[in-house]
Design a protein around this nucleic acid. Structure first.
Lengths: 358, 358
DNA sequence: CTGTTAGCGCTTTCAC
DNA sequence: GTGAAAGCGCTAACAG
């Protein structure tokens, strides 16, 4: 089987359409560009039918080369295996399609080198804008690009020293709500289990909301437990440690609960609790950031803070498009609200019966 | 903040580099194309340093326009929310990066119109090849494109009348293995629960392997249960139906088990069983296609057939690149093997104790 | 070994 | 209203 290269002999070009229709390339171009009132009814119809007959499809590469309008948007994702990223991607892709843009996706796998390469690749395709969601320890290349090349919108986490727009969760508020729910359910000793806080604003925001809520209740104790989820056994060890410490402090009067900082952490916690043969809510309360497909399934159901991931992705693209279209307003942050989904894991009283699933 | 358009004044071009280095554009182009032995050591060094100094990055749009080598690969995904698709995407993206290609992702959301639009979009960017994983009821546009424009590799499912390469699971073999495992575990009445078979070769393959294994055991009964997972309550109703029918047939001697046709179905089954207050393996055996993050977590763990999703995505890209590089061998199918992961849900005897998790 | 020249398919002045 | 001509940034003959 032989393919006629997509650019080459096989493809019908604007010149062919012009010749067939007996008009100039300029008129075709005007037609494509939507300058309809600049064409006579006569030409308009001629062009329309010729395009349809030949199945003509303008080359975006050529259009982009001339005008800079590539209708391409790049998205850099820290970890495509993270359900949060995929959920946001879902909304972003939908928005792109709705606005006639196409998404170029790069997964950095939390690797700085790949992040840099991907950035360069996206730049070389002249993407009109970039959705960015990676660690970003070394953000110099990004800052440079953003200043000179194209608009950038940050997802989920801020980057220090960058004045890019950001779309994400209202972390402080969501964490406060989560913590207050646990306190209201009667828990006295709560551990916020998160991946390393350093440099990640969203995690820091969740911690802030958590501590804020705790500080309103002098009788309650809250602490932050940092875990490395890619380090086998680390989560279990840290949990064990936390439990022992609190029991030592308050004895059996301590009502222990965990607030999981995100979906990846929740999974590790669920696995760890299972390996420790601890059940929730009987032995320990549990509330997790990120609603996952399996949240209702484990134990008596895991309570969660659901993020509006689709909207986050969708409005991130719309923010980007606004900048692409020339908006020059000062930096904006769009913080969306989370939603508490109560299940058995955070309701010690009622949940003893088992499968209540509101 | 004002952005100098990515194509435009801000960008460093080959002409500037040529001028600065005091050589011709051709020499720069040769350098970029890796024709190093065509350059003198003198020029090579001049060019290298100038490129570095100016931070020059060739425009892929321009390169693509001229030579047809866009280094772009399109991927059409039926449903980005399906964990299988994402897992394959993961491998595909990695392979692209390794080979210097960039992925253009389109999610069709199982919508034929969007599928057609996305196909057109990818074509308009002159992707060099396409990874395709959608329903494909109406495949006329795809077949047309594939014949005239660029190579296509199919993921997971065949498309009738298309001679495209395919990469996926050896479904017959995997289903046979799965079924034999259930039979060996003592189950006598097995329901293969799948989404509608019609037109989806991978589902049909799984059914074939299932029936094959069943036919080897005259004492056992197997039947196919088609479900619509987007129809609330349908899965539960179909399961209920199946159970009643088999109990009616064989009474308490019937050892019932379910073989779930894919990850999306498993989730619905797990939810349905939960709503019916049925546990596994106590009340019913369960084995699911697709290993998911939460498979170890539910009940005493769900046994699964794990697909080598990363490899599937990775080798699909490599297959595509072979075609792009001109390979004209007849159509090839690459069928990878699944792996059985035994957990509690398919082991009625041992599993009564609870959390054995090999 | 190196440079000159002519486009790739499209948009965009600038005339008519 | 319409079209001719000049590029966008790059590659690929073709000369020297």
């Amino acid at each position: 089987m032989q393919y006629t290269r997509s650019v080459g002999a096989g493809r019908v070009t604007i010149a062919q359409v012009a010749r067939e229709a007996g008009v100039s390339k300029t008129s075709i171009s005007r037609y494509l560009g939507g300058e309809l009132d600049a064409l006579s009814e006569h030409l308009r119809e001629r062009i329309r039918s010729t395009i349809a007959r030949l199945g003509y499809q303008p080359s975006q590469m050529a259009r982009g080369l001339k005008g800079g309008r590539t209708r391409l948007i790049g998205m850099l994702v820290a970890d495509i295996l993270n359900p949060y990223s995929v959920a946001v991607l879902h909304g972003a892709e939908a928005a792109c399609q709705e606005h006639g843009y196409t998404l170029m996706l790069c997964n950095t796998g939390n690797d700085e080198k790949r992040e840099k390469q991907s950035l360069a690749a996206l730049h070389s395709y002249s993407v009109e804008g970039l959705l960015f969601n990676t660690q970003g320890r070394n953000v110099a290349p990004l800052k440079e690009l953003g200043r000179t090349a194209f608009p950038v919108v940050l997802l989920d986490r801020r980057i220090e020293g960058c004045d890019f727009d950001l779309v994400g969760l209202d972390n402080v508020r969501a964490a406060r709500m989560a913590t207050e729910h646990l306190l209201a359910s009667g828990y006295t000793d709560i551990g916020l289990v998160v991946q390393p806080l350093h440099g990640v604003s969203s995690r820091q925001g969740r911690q802030a909301g958590f501590l804020e809520a705790i500080s309103g209740r002098p009788d309650a104790h809250g602490e932050t437990v940092e875990v490395h989820i890619d380090q086998p056994g680390h989560v279990a060890a840290m949990l064990q440690d936390f439990f022992k410490r609190r029991r030592g402090q308050r004895g059996d009067a301590a009502k222990l609960a965990i607030l999981a900082g995100n979906g990846m952490v929740s999974l590790q916690i669920a696995l760890a609790l299972r390996s420790m043969k601890l059940r929730f809510p009987e032995d320990i309360g549990l509330l997790c950031f990120d609603e996952l497909s399996w949240s209702p399934l484990v134990g008596s159901g895991i309570s969660t803070i659901e993020q509006p991931t689709y909207e986050i992705g969708f409005s991130a693209i719309e923010r980007l498009l606004a900048r692409i279209h020339g908006e020059s307003a000062p930096r904006r942050e769009i913080l969306l609200d989370g939603r508490l989904i109560q299940r058995g894991s955070s309701q010690p009283a009622q949940a003893s019966a088992g499968s209540k699933d509101p």
